[in-house]
Amino acid sequence: MDLKNKKNKWKHRHFWQSFCHASAGLLTAWKEERNLRFHSFAAIAVFLLAWLLQLGLFEWLWLGLCVTLVLVSELWNTVLENVVDLITECKRDPLAKKAKDIASGAVFVTAVFAAISGAVIFIPHLLALF
C-alpha cells in the first residue's frame, strides 16, 4: 500500500482548522487548569504595571519572554499530566507521580526565573517613584 495515497485523518490541511483546534485546546486548558488561570492573571498584572511604569522596548521584550515561557511550560505540564493519566488510566503509580512532579518542577523553575527577571526590571522603576 502506498502511504502517499493514504489520507491522514488527523492531519489538518487548512490553517483555519488548525487555528480552531489550537484555540479549543487553549480554552480547555484555561477552563480546567487553575494554575494556568493564575499565571494568566499574573501576566495581565505584569503587563499593566509595565504600561503604567512606561517601560522600554527591551524590558517589554524580557517580560514578554518570561510570561510566554511560564505559560508554555504550564501548558506542557498540562499535556504531560493528561497523557500520564491516559496511560495509567488515572491509577496511582510511582513513575506517574514522578513524571508529574518533575513536569511541575519545570514550571516552578520557569516561574522563579520570571519572578527574578521581573524583580530586576521592576524594582529600579518602583524605587525611582519614591
Rank of each mutant, 00 (worst) to 15 (best):
E81V: 04
L86D: 10
F58Y: 14
H39G: 02
V112K: 14
L27D: 11
P94M: 09
A43M: 07
L80I: 09
W60Y: 14
P94W: 11
A111E: 04
V107C: 03
E89F: 07
S23W: 07
F113T: 00
V79G: 08
K7E: 12
E59Q: 13
W16F: 12
H39N: 14
L57I: 15
K4S: 15
S40W: 08
L86V: 02
L26K: 14
P94G: 12
I87A: 04
H21V: 04
V84I: 12
E81W: 05
A119P: 02
L65F: 05
F130W: 15
R13S: 10
A128H: 15
S117Q: 10
H39W: 14
A43V: 01
E74D: 15
D93H: 14
K6N: 05
N35V: 11
S117D: 00
E74Y: 09
V70D: 02
S117V: 01
P124I: 07
K97A: 15
L52E: 05
P94K: 08
F122T: 05
K98S: 15
N82C: 05
K11N: 06
A43R: 00
A29F: 08
S73C: 06
H39I: 10
H21G: 03
I87Y: 08
L55Y: 12
S73W: 07
L57W: 14
G105V: 01
F19V: 02
N35E: 13
I102N: 11
L126K: 01
H21K: 04
S117G: 10
F47V: 06
P124Y: 07
E89N: 11
I87V: 03
L95F: 04
W76L: 13
T78G: 13
G25A: 15
I116V: 11
V72T: 06
L48C: 01
V79N: 08
A96V: 12
L27H: 10
T68F: 13
F108T: 12
R92A: 13
L63I: 03
T88Q: 10
A96S: 11
L129D: 06
V84P: 00
V79D: 01
S104Q: 05
L3N: 12
A22H: 08
E74P: 11
L127W: 13
F38H: 13
A96D: 04
V84F: 09
W76N: 01
G25C: 15
A50K: 04
N8F: 06
S18K: 02
S23C: 10
M1T: 10
W60H: 03
V46A: 07
I116C: 07
I44H: 10
V72L: 15
E89P: 01
K100P: 03
I121Q: 01
F47T: 07
T68V: 06
K7F: 05
S104D: 06
L63D: 00
H14C: 05
G25H: 11
L71I: 12
K9M: 12
F113R: 03
R34A: 08
A50I: 10
L65C: 00
W76R: 11
H14M: 09
H39E: 04
F15R: 03
D101Q: 14
T110W: 00
A22P: 03
E33G: 01
T78Q: 10
A45N: 07
N77E: 14
L95R: 08
I123K: 07
L80F: 05
